[in-house]
Design a protein around this nucleic acid. Structure first.
Length: 202
DNA sequence: CGAATGATCGGCT
DNA sequence: GCCGATCATTCGA
């Protein structure tokens, strides 16, 4: 396997990056535990024109500052006071684009994931959904701003076995963004066709 | 400084 | 299907 590098992350077409992240491996190494999940569902967010994006209209706050950093950083934030959502920052400096990772297929470190989630059986609900996958992989807001291009990063991405074909990608509207007006129906949620490890379709 | 709210999840009906 | 959890962040006074 080889790590995704600068030229993958720093493209300006966040929609394309979101599709190409499907099939890649999200890896974490915390507390001496290696966990790996194959990414099966993503969503693209494109500041500054996308009303669903935290960086809409060049909005710049302490929380969203990371989105303005160069591609390859991790943007992690807390939602509903409970869930830590993991995003991959893309494009260049001051282009606030990011891809939310919404579901992974457990590959490595499954006992660790089960323990972190307090579950005993390997079922899709272990890692289907942005909050649950973060918990299973041990990702928290502590790691927002982590540069995943650094060789010693505890969070990183590995290339997939082979690219997912366009015909095997299902696009649909993003979820939980009812406030985003004309952006509500834009089909920037991507999933691998036939994967049982994705969250429920809208 | 106070109040509202959210890129969600899981338990209960 | 509905609803409550739970708190950092954001914005307005």
């Amino acid at each position: 396997m080889s790590r995704l590098a600068t030229d993958f992350y720093q493209r300006t077409d966040v929609e394309q990056v979101a599709k190409e992240l499907l099939g890649t491996f999200l890896c974490t190494h915390f507390d001496d535990q290696l966990t790996i999940g194959k990414i099966v569902e993503t969503e693209a967010y494109r500041g500054p024109d996308d009303k669903a994006c935290h960086a809409y209209n060049h909005r710049r706050t302490k929380r969203t500052e990371v989105m303005y950093w160069h591609g390859g950083h991790a943007y992690v934030y807390l939602i509903y006071g409970i869930h830590h959502l993991f995003n991959v920052v893309t494009a260049g400096i001051d282009q606030a684009h990011a891809v939310l990772i919404r579901a992974v297929e457990p590959i490595e470190g499954i006992p660790t994931m089960l323990e972190r989630r307090g579950q005993s059986q390997l079922l899709p609900k272990l890692t289907a959904g942005p909050g649950t996958l973060s918990k299973a992989l041990g990702i928290s807001t502590l790691y927002t701003g982590q540069n995943m291009l650094l060789p010693d990063s505890p969070i990183w991405l590995e290339q997939g076995e082979s690219p997912i074909e366009e015909q095997d990608i299902i696009a649909s509207p993003r979820v939980g963004i009812g406030y985003a007006e004309e952006w509500v129906e834009v089909p920037w949620r991507f999933r691998i066709r036939g994967s049982k490890w994705t969250s429920r379709a809208k």
